[in-house]
Nucleic acid binder design. Structure first.
Lengths: 187, 187
DNA sequence: ATAATAACTTACTAATAGGTAAGTGTCAAG
DNA sequence: CTTGACACTTACCTATTAGTAAGTTATTAT
């Protein structure tokens, strides 16, 4: 079954969001899937291999997400707002972004996974920068703003807000989203 | 020696910033301090106890930081900018905010530490909100802005930027700081 | 029918984790 | 001089971790 592999990676990503790369174990996965630990090792011999699969899955998700937004026939500003909105709705209340989680655990990751995370981060940033750039051609942004900096700031604030939401109220995130939209409208 | 306890907590915080609560071990600490693991357990019987000490240290650091800024005789806007600047300079290039790190590991923390982290997060947010509110009395902010939301957004973006900086270029953070200052000036 | 493959399980290993009990050396107070 | 506290060390224990080797079962191809 190629399905089982998908199942494992799906669950692993969820576990990364909940407990981090260091915090989840093959035992967690095997118990939740109702199979033995050795069976997980059959599909992903080393944790490193699963780590790589996780990051690759994140990359394709990002790319699909980008495509679906690019193909939507709305204005640049609306694309940006849609991206922000979806980015925020993707996660359950106690879940954080898997990329943030892996960035936090960066120093404990195997080298190959570290490189993959670097790649993912760069990709995410370039997608965001592209969307911001497209929005800038309209009235949405001042051109005194550095496009890349705006992109990083938006992404960072969402990721950071997810951390605060995890331990505080649920509406922490919505406050940040509103604030970002306000800033985009005003500048 | 009460000094040894301080030494342990200092190192533990650094390790939390580098590898997270789950990622650091008593062995890490003992080896770096040149004593045995059991000696660390003498000072902090359970890891939980060390976890509590870590969060309490973070709280007093935050409070001292707040006092030093409050007592500085500059305008509200400058206090805010000074806070942001110092908050950013506090961390080495591969280090992230210890609060962010503990928020990420939240689900793996002992209950007592979880509650402490909730407390720390609330405190940090209230400090930030206070500074933003003081800045709002001047021309710095629009009063259409929700003070709390602005505070969370600023904090979140800094914390998030530290994550990206860890895996990408060093100037990711400075870009975000500049952007925040731009926003504060413009609105 | 048989061989081969995929997807497992059973049963292990070595390393590391947090944690503990009992003893050692040092030093100050009575 | 001795008692007691403090700051340790030695030597352990148990649980969990990633990882492996060998065997089992079902399905498929020849």
């Amino acid at each position: 079954m190629e399905n089982r592999k998908k199942q494992i990676v799906d669950l692993a990503i969820k576990l990364v969001q909940q407990k981090g790369y260091v915090g989840f174990s093959y035992d967690d996965i095997s118990k939740q899937l109702g199979v033995t630990k050795a069976s997980i090792h059959y599909h992903f011999e080393k944790k490193e291999d699963l780590g790589v699969a996780i990051t690759e899955r994140i990359i394709t998700s990002l790319q699909n997400f980008l495509l679906s937004i690019k193909n939507s026939s709305v204005s640049g500003g609306d694309k940006l707002k849609r991206f922000i909105q979806q980015q925020a709705e993707r996660f359950a209340c106690t879940e954080i972004c898997p990329i943030s989680s892996l960035q936090t655990d960066f120093n404990s990751l195997p080298e190959i996974v570290q490189k993959k995370i670097e790649e993912v981060s760069r990709l995410e940033l370039s997608i965001m920068t592209e969307l911001v750039a497209e929005a800038q051609t309209e009235d949405i942004l001042n051109d005194t703003d550095d496009v890349q900096s705006v992109a990083v700031t938006i992404l960072s604030s969402i990721k950071g807000a997810l951390l605060y939401r995890r331990v505080l109220d649920d509406d922490i995130l919505t406050g940040v989203i509103n604030q970002i939209n306000l800033i985009l409208r005003k500048s």
